[in-house]
Amino acid sequence: MPDLDSGAQISFSQAFLCSAFAACLAELCTVPLDTAKVRLQLQKKAAFGDGTGIPKYRGLLGTIKTIAREEGLSALWKGTIPGLHRQFLYGGLRIGLYDPVKTFLVGSAFVEEIPLYQMILAAMLTGALAIMVANPTDLVKVRLQSEGQLSMGVPRRYSGAMDAYFTIMRQEGFGALWTGLGPNIARNAIINAAELASYDQVKRTVLTIPGFTDNVFTHLLASLGAGLFAVFFGSPLDVVKSRMMGDSTFKNTLDCFLKTLFNEGFLAFYKGFFPNFARVGLWNVVMFLTLEQAKKSFRGPL
């Protein structure tokens, strides 16, 4: 039984609203973890703290404490507004389109279980399409989250989300809002495939175990599995995306990838892995549990 196929019983507009609402709620719950993840990803060996070689940010909790101590608790929620912009557009599209695209790929007359490779392809397509629309919101979110990296006394570049959009357009050009689009498309196609297809597959597998039913506990297990797969496959691209969006000195995606690889080693692509999993795991739990309940409310009693 494909788990998200139940969304086919509601219209696309309803599926979009359910997905956007669930994604925005999950975003609100995980912004501090995402801020910590971005700071860890942007941290480079040559730019540690006071030049003593000791990193300024160390671990998830250490990074959160450092940000709160130096910049105040509110700094942990920097990027919330563009984050919500992003989740409304990106979350609504990538999840809302997933079932229609699966149906398109296999044909409306298909009645068997959808093969895993078709689910992966559908999720990759919707992830890529959605981020092409939502990339400016992702860029502004990362820029605002990286403001704390600036040295003491250096004026902040943006006063808020809307100011960031207009400042980037004015100073760097309209096309600059799509900075990092290449790695972002690759990242979100892969993560969306790992997330949605694995959620489908894990839920389908769990439901074959005697005693398990389509309930909240099953959704919890499937969402944690989806989060783990998404972080494992998406972390390298996530690091490149964050660095390109937070640092305009890189020429292109390949330049960012090679400089990170040769200067810091392969493990640099998994910087912030545990805070990323903590964030993505929690994000997936909140999002999928909310999504399942929201869709049920539209479908009504079965």
Rank of each mutant, 00 (worst) to 15 (best):
M162F: 12
D163F: 04
N184W: 09
I190E: 03
G182Q: 13
A164Q: 06
G173L: 10
G153C: 08
I190Q: 05
Q145H: 00
Q149T: 03
V154C: 01
F174D: 07
Y165C: 08
R157C: 14
Y158D: 09
E172K: 13
R156K: 15
Y165K: 09
T179H: 09
E195I: 06
R143T: 00
R170M: 15
G153S: 06
M162W: 07
G148K: 02
N192T: 10
G175F: 12
I185E: 09
F174K: 13
A186Q: 01
A193C: 00
G175Y: 07
R143N: 00
P155F: 11
L144N: 00
R170G: 12
M152Y: 08
L150G: 05
E172S: 14
L177M: 07
R157K: 15
L181A: 14
M169F: 08
L177R: 04
A193T: 01
V154L: 07
R187F: 12
S159Y: 04
L144V: 02
E172N: 11
S146R: 02
T179N: 08
S159C: 08
A194P: 00
R157W: 12
Y158E: 10
M169I: 11
A161E: 01
T167S: 14
I190V: 06
P183H: 14
I168R: 06
G148T: 02
D163T: 10
Q149C: 05
N192C: 11
A186M: 12
G175K: 15
A176W: 00
L144P: 01
L144F: 04
V154Q: 10
Y158P: 00
G175S: 13
A189C: 04
I168D: 08
A193M: 01
M152Q: 10
V142Y: 03
N192H: 07
L181H: 04
G148L: 01
P155Q: 10
S151C: 02
A176T: 07
R157I: 12
F166I: 11
N184A: 13
G180V: 05
I168N: 10
N184R: 11
Q149M: 09
G160D: 03
R156I: 14
G175E: 05
L150N: 06
G153F: 04
I191K: 02
A161G: 10
P183M: 15
R156A: 11
I168L: 13
W178D: 03
L150A: 13
R187T: 01
M152S: 09
E147V: 04
Q171M: 15
S159N: 09
G180T: 06
G160S: 06
L181F: 06
G153D: 01
A189V: 02
M162C: 13
Q171R: 15
